[in-house]
Write a protein that binds this DNA or RNA. Sequence first.
DNA 1: CCTTAATCCGACTTGCCGAGTCGGACATCG
DNA 2: CGATGTCCGACTCGGCAAGTCGGATTAAGG
Lengths: 160, 160
Amino acid sequence: MLRLSKKADYALIAMRHLAGAAADSSVSAREIAESYGIPAELLAKVLQRLVRSRLLVSVQGTRGGYRLAGDARLLTVADVIQAIDGPVAVTACSPDDHGCEQYDRCEIRDPLWKIKSRIVDALATVSLAELAEPAPAPGTPVAVPMYVRGAAPAPPQVVE
Amino acid sequence: MLRLSKKADYALIAMRHLAGAAADSSVSAREIAESYGIPAELLAKVLQRLVRSRLLVSVQGTRGGYRLAGDARLLTVADVIQAIDGPVAVTACSPDDHGCEQYDRCEIRDPLWKIKSRIVDALATVSLAELAEPAPAPGTPVAVPMYVRGAAPAPPQVVE
DNA sequence: CCTTAATCCGACTTGCCGAGTCGGACATCG
DNA sequence: CGATGTCCGACTCGGCAAGTCGGATTAAGG
């Protein structure tokens, strides 16, 4: 298992599609959905959540659609997954959050959190540009995940 | 998300407990369950599956219980997780298995599988001995996951 | 040798979260 | 100003994990 949700799959497909599109053009949710055989309404819901996470910008109206919020080389798959499925957490409880029932008796929490850090690193080192181009040209800037740069102004609402 | 199942959590807790116990003593499922506040019957089911995966050995009878099948320094958390939740798979379909619906149109499958490899590497580099002792003594042998060593004699039954 | 007690083992039932769907609000174009 | 096509939030349904129960097996004690 350890499989990521289908919504995250759809989100990555859509983001990759947008990364390959023209920078100033807006592509509608229906267009993406029909291109990949994804339920249109479900994909729309996914894209909405990406907008609320400041990864996409939406333009309404007849010729509306979605557009990437930033440079494809700076957006990572870790950003996308965390926007959809919430913060990555291997364990039910964090080292700081005592929400877990058997908190004091649990001894595997701390080592597992080190593993979690390595997983998010693995996710953060792959940018959307690398997704679009499996063979990256030399000299491409190194991807830095958004939550490290602090560029996002602390999204106040809970993503869920 | 990306959280591993509760059964895997219980499995890791139990395996760590067994790694800290005496090598030749058998500890019962009920004993472990009561030590950590885990539903006894559920933990028993988890341990059964670990036995079928050749990670534990069970001794029945009045003073029965479970015992580790091998050296704690050679068993990794990747072995435990794969025994419980099945093989780790980030995507629904593998590069070889065409079971996915939008197989040909999907372009994110291959890069995601590279990420998957890095995740299993992160899981495989942590042994049960390291779980028990957060500060390992120098000179401890490097953990090599079981599925690489080929030590397991090809468990015939499907784990699920 | 038989009884007893404790364990392991497989199949079943239930609750919950994700997958998918529907109607409303908005902005743009003719 | 009307119509069209888009984005947006709330609702319903199914599948799978979490948890539970009785039966089979084994070893110890009298």
